[in-house]
C-alpha cells in the first residue's frame, strides 16, 4: 500500500507540473489571440473610416431570414492518442460555395470594392480563428489532466486512510 501511495504521489507531481506548463502555454496563446484581435479591430476601424460608420457593422451580417450559407472554417475532432483525449483540427474551405453553387466570400457582405484594410482584417481574424482552435486544444488537455488529478487525489486519500487504519 505504501508503494502504491508513493507511485500515486509521483504521478500526481508529474501531472501537476504538466498542467502548470499547459496553463502557461494557454495564457500565452490567449495573449497572442488578444493581440491578433486588436490588430483586426484596428483594420476594421480603418475600413469604417474609409467606407462610413455603418458600412462595416452588424447590419451587414446575415440575419435569420437570410439565404443559407456554409461555414468556411470548420473543425474535425479526433482522438489524440491519450486516454480519452480529443483534439481539434481546423480546416478552411478553399472554394466555398453557397446553396446556389456560387462562390462565396464573407467580404462581399460589405460591398464589391472593399478597402484593403478589410482584407487585412479578414486575414487577422483568420489567424485569430487558428489561435482559438489551438487554445481549445490546450483547454481540452488541461481539462483531461484536471479529471485525472481529481481521480488520483481521491485514490491517494483512500490509500492514506487505509494506511492509518
Amino acid at each position: 500500500m505504501a508503494e502504491n501511495l508513493s507511485k500515486v504521489c509521483s504521478i500526481l507531481d508529474k501531472l501537476m507540473l504538466e498542467t502548470l506548463m499547459l496553463i502557461e502555454k494557454y495564457i500565452d496563446l490567449k495573449i497572442n489571440l488578444e493581440t491578433t484581435m486588436c490588430d483586426g479591430e484596428a483594420h476594421l476601424a480603418k475600413s469604417r473610416y474609409i467606407m462610413g460608420q455603418n458600412c462595416v457593422s452588424a447590419l451587414q451580417l446575415p440575419i435569420k431570414d437570410s439565404a443559407e450559407f456554409p461555414a468556411i472554417a470548420t473543425v474535425h475532432s479526433h482522438d489524440d492518442g491519450k486516454f480519452g483525449g480529443k483534439s481539434f483540427d481546423l480546416e478552411f474551405e478553399k472554394n466555398p460555395k453557397n446553396e446556389n453553387g456560387e462562390s462565396f466570400d464573407p467580404l462581399r457582405w460589405f460591398g464589391i470594392l472593399v478597402p484593403q484594410d478589410l482584407h487585412r482584417a479578414q486575414m487577422k481574424y483568420k489567424q485569430a480563428v487558428t489561435w482559438s482552435v489551438e487554445c481549445a486544444n490546450l483547454q481540452m488537455e488541461i481539462h483531461q489532466n484536471l479529471v485525472k488529478i481529481k481521480q488520483l487525489k481521491d485514490y491517494k486519500l483512500e490509500c492514506s486512510t487505509n494506511k492509518e487504519e
Binding site: E41, L61, P62, I72, T74, P96, Y125
Partner: peptide, 26 residues
C-alpha cells in the same frame, strides 16, 4: 467529411471579425 462548427457569442466587432474569418453559418 463535413466539419463541425465554431460558434460566436460576442460584441459587434468580435462577430463581424470572426464572421469575416469564415466561422459563420446559417
Amino acid at each position: 467529411i463535413k466539419g463541425k462548427l465554431i460558434s460566436v457569442i460576442g460584441d459587434e466587432d468580435t462577430c463581424v471579425g470572426f464572421l469575416l474569418g469564415g466561422v459563420g453559418e446559417i
